[in-house]
Write a protein that binds this DNA or RNA. Structure first.
Length: 582
RNA sequence: GGGGCUGUAGCUCAGUUGGUUAGAGUGCCGGUCUGUCACACCGGAGGUCGCGGGUUCGAGUCCCGUCAGCCCCGCCA
């Protein structure tokens, strides 16, 4: 193909087909960049070779016209070699050029020059067929393909079976909002598009497929973000007769293979593991970015008697004072330090407290307000040195944690303290329940079928929030890639968990009766995992939005600009579905 | 549901304190050009200043509303 031609092909005759990338008309000679999936090659049109009419035709070839070229691969004259181009040593001497399809002047560029800005994302999505011709987008989608191939290859070797599950499913009351599909033959009733194959894969375990996987499309009707699309692709898997270690090993094997196959990077196995409780204590976050080495320390003990009201007050009212040291951070400008308040506020705290350390004590911020021994104790506790910045948040953990996490990430990036590398981490033992803010009732932190640590079994009814689950997340460089758990396979325990959630037998029957029924007939112990593959591709592509690695993504308002979805329906069509708009 | 940024030529952008004829680069059209590679040079066409309303003698510019795109909070078992 055009983009694959190299010096070794000199002398061969080729017939190429592709798109006109750019045309350079020198009056006599005409050069055409011919682009196909593999890249761009220069086609030279020389009046000594081509007829007058053929030259005239070549002059008129506009951008993105589809052409076929026949000719010989020749070495370029030494002074005309282009070292910036993969095919720059050679060119194709055209002997015949045929236009296969015309092209209007494209509304957005495909062939961007070095200093030209990309068109707006709105236009790129509107004219996605042109945007996807760009080599960067082609590269991203090829990368995606290779990742998927690597996953399938690895899981096949591990004897996982790929099973498809329905797209038209039963609406689920819990979790994200469902996308609904009206049933024509059952007016007034609806299918839901799957949020994930969760219940089906558990039933496949009961059905004896002890190693299942699927690269499954999942749909959730929630608001979008740069890293959240309404339809996304998960690697979903489930295994029977296993414990956490088996699931982790399987996922690690897949990830190590992907990183090796598509990026040529070596990732150490096993991945680091850290209980949820430790992650929150050391990083203030359940998905810490381990590329930043700094860890949080509790300073409450040394500051509980402090004259400085904010510290003493926080400890007296049951909160804590925690912080971390930023090596070399004393050099930060006043402006950079003022910004810390905003960062902390974005994390939910009233503001950030800081001080700079030097040989003569602490400058600025809270430092001068501390008694000498207190400052010394803080320094010692943080193992801080002269020239460091100390950043502290005082208050209740649920406000301080997000703020400390935001500050750690922000300062890590400002100070250039984010190390290179691939830091995978299993965060384990998530709480089984969290408190719903409005009602104070426990709600599942993962889903209601998540298994629990049997050491905490006796606390299930009287102290549910302290029960540790067997759920785990996979974190990569501070970003959550996926989550999973060992499930409950015992009907009695499942009933107890549902009861804590306020779901009685009747309601349970109505909502997930088919799963509970399946469990009556011999459910093996099982567990699994699901990984957001779009995010995996995004990380490996070095992209900052999922839209760069999905062929046809939706906008922030969940609209498809190219095809125009969603779209209104005619009354006649709605009537057939038994739907009346208000 | 809330907060922020953006919207001016096909595309990327500039546009001062509200002032008379809204600019640049690129693309497009025409011309010159035999080694270019974002070809170069000369000339030309191209505008519902997102849309609606208001203030004003006068609005791209100020105010209100609205639409669209992007980022974030809520939400995402």
């Amino acid at each position: 193909m055009a983009g694959e031609l190299r010096a070794e092909h000199v002398g061969t005759r080729v017939r190429l087909a592709g798109w006109v990338h750019r045309r350079r008309d020198l009056g006599g000679l005409v050069f055409i960049g011919l682009r196909d999936r593999k890249g761009v090659v220069q086609v030279s049109c020389d009046p000594d070779v081509l007829s007058e009419a053929a030259m005239e035709g070549a002059r008129r070839l506009g951008s993105e016209v589809v052409v076929a070229v026949e000719g010989e691969v020749v070495a370029r004259p030494p002074e005309a070699v282009n070292p910036d181009m993969e095919t720059g040593a050679i060119e194709v001497k055209a002997e015949a050029i045929a236009q296969l399809a015309p092209a209007e002047t494209p509304p957005i560029l495909v062939a961007y020059g070095a200093d030209e800005e990309l068109s707006s994302e709105e236009l790129r999505l509107r004219y996605r067929f042109l945007d996807l011709r760009r080599p960067e987008m082609q590269r991203n989608l090829v990368l995606r393909h290779r990742i998927f191939q690597s996953i399938r290859r690895t899981l096949d070797e591990l004897e996982f079976i790929d099973v498809e599950t329905p797209m038209l499913t039963r609406p689920t009351p819990e979790g994200a909002r469902d996308y609904l599909v009206p049933s024509r033959v059952s007016p007034g009733e609806f299918y839901a598009l799957p949020q994930s194959p969760q219940l089906y894969k558990q039933i496949l375990m009961v059905a004896g497929f002890d190693r299942y996987f699927q690269i499954a499309r999942c749909l959730r009707d929630e608001d979008l973000r740069a890293d959240r699309q309404p339809e996304f692709t998960q690697l979903d898997l489930e295994m029977s007769f296993v414990s956490e270690e088996d699931v982790w090993t399987a996922i690690e094997t897949v990830m190590v293979a992907v990183w090796r196959d598509v990026a040529g990077r070596t990732v150490e196995q096993p991945f680091l593991r850290m209980p949820f409780r430790d992650a929150m204590e050391r990083y203030g976050c359940d998905k810490p970015d381990l590329r930043i080495a700094w860890e949080l320390r509790d300073l409450s003990e040394v500051l509980r008697e402090s004259e400085f009201r904010i510290f003493r007050g926080a400890v007296e009212s049951g909160g804590r004072v925690r912080g971390f040291r930023v090596p070399g951070g004393a050099q930060l400008s006043r402006k950079a330090l003022d910004e810390l308040d905003k960062v902390a506020q974005s994390g939910g705290a009233p503001g950030a407290l800081w001080t700079k350390l030097s040989g003569s004590g602490a400058q600025g911020g809270f430092g001068p307000k501390l008694a000498e021994p207190e400052l010394a104790a803080v320094r010692e506790r943080l193992e801080a040195l002269d020239g460091d910045l100390i950043v502290v948040i005082a208050g209740a953990d649920d406000l301080a944690n997000p703020a400390l996490d935001a500050l750690r990430r922000h300062l890590g990036s400002v100070m250039g303290a984010v190390e290179e590398g691939d830091r995978f981490l299993w965060v384990t033992e998530f709480p089984l329940f969290e408190r719903e803010p409005e009602s104070d009732d426990p709600v599942p932190s993962h889903h209601p079928f998540t298994g629990l640590n049997l050491e905490d079994l006796d606390k299930l009814e009287h102290d549910p929030l302290s029960v540790r689950s067997r759920a785990y997340d996979l974190v990569y460089n501070g970003s959550e890639l996926g989550s999973g758990s060992i499930r409950i396979n015992e009907p009695n325990l499942q009933r107890r968990v549902l009861a804590v959630l306020g779901i009685g037998p009747e309601e349970a029957q109505r909502k997930f009766g088919f799963l509970l029924e399946a469990f009556k007939y011999g459910a093996p112990p099982h567990g699994g995992f699901a990984i957001g593959l779009d995010r995996v591709v995004m990380h490996l592509a070095g992209a900052s939005s999922l839209r760069e690695v999905i062929a046809f993504p939706k906008t922030t308002a969940a609209r498809a600009l190219m095809e125009g979805a969603p779209a209104p329906m005619a009354d006649k069509d709605l009537k057939e579905l038994g739907i009346k708009l208000s």
